[in-house]
Design a protein around this nucleic acid. Sequence first.
DNA 1: AAGCCATGCAACCGCGGCATA
DNA 2: GTATGCCGCGGTTGCATGGCT
Length: 237
Amino acid sequence: MVRSPCCDKTKVKKGPWSAQEDALLLNFTATFGNGGNWISLPKKAGLNRCGKSCRLRYLNYLRPDIKHGGFTEEEDYVIYKLFNAIGSRWAIIASNLPGRTDNDVKNYWNTKLKRKISSGEFNIINNPIRNCCKKHNNNSQISNNENITNTIEKDRSYYEIESLNMVESKESTEEIPSYYSENSSSNSTDFNGISGEEDEFWMDLLADSFDSSVVAVASHQLQEKMSEIASLLHDSS
DNA sequence: AAGCCATGCAACCGCGGCATA
DNA sequence: GTATGCCGCGGTTGCATGGCT
């Protein structure tokens, strides 16, 4: 099948966007969204651009929730782990980093993080997200489930990484193991044979930091998150 | 000061998937 | 069942900038 071009490439403007074009696009999207159709948006918005170019400009740069600026070490860790787990599926990786776009993550990986890792500058053992469980352990103010829920939300990315690792290693979303037994307590953990440094981290997080009732909350949230990601991967495969 | 090179990042390109006629 | 159109994604390109010689 021969694909017809989305627009006449010879008649639309290419290259960097001007401030005026940005303003036109922003004004239009603020009022109408993409109008249900990116291809027809340029005409409606008064832009001499390809619809795909408008979509890219908006999603990667103009969208109000975009986070500009350098990546944190926590974000490095998430990217590193997800890349190892699922490869260059930038959209999924970016979805774990609020405010980051797939393009951003891809550029960051290709230009900086890859080099940072190979040079040894990026140290997974000393990464702050890994050490956060120790922080929790020393924080006596964390004393109720609400606080723990907030803490867990902050560590959401880690849970998702673990889920993705499991999906990858089992090669089937239907074979995701029950990573943490529903009846487990801090010293009767059932890890279904999964081992390794990252699992030690998970054990630290659950067993060292919290009492058993809190662990139950974490376990439940993890199960939910795993199901969510499993279905996401299932849908995308 | 000028030229060269490396780096970072915005933008483009083409393909696959999906919805719909 | 097939053709068509749109969206989203990943790979790649090209330009701007800064550092080095």
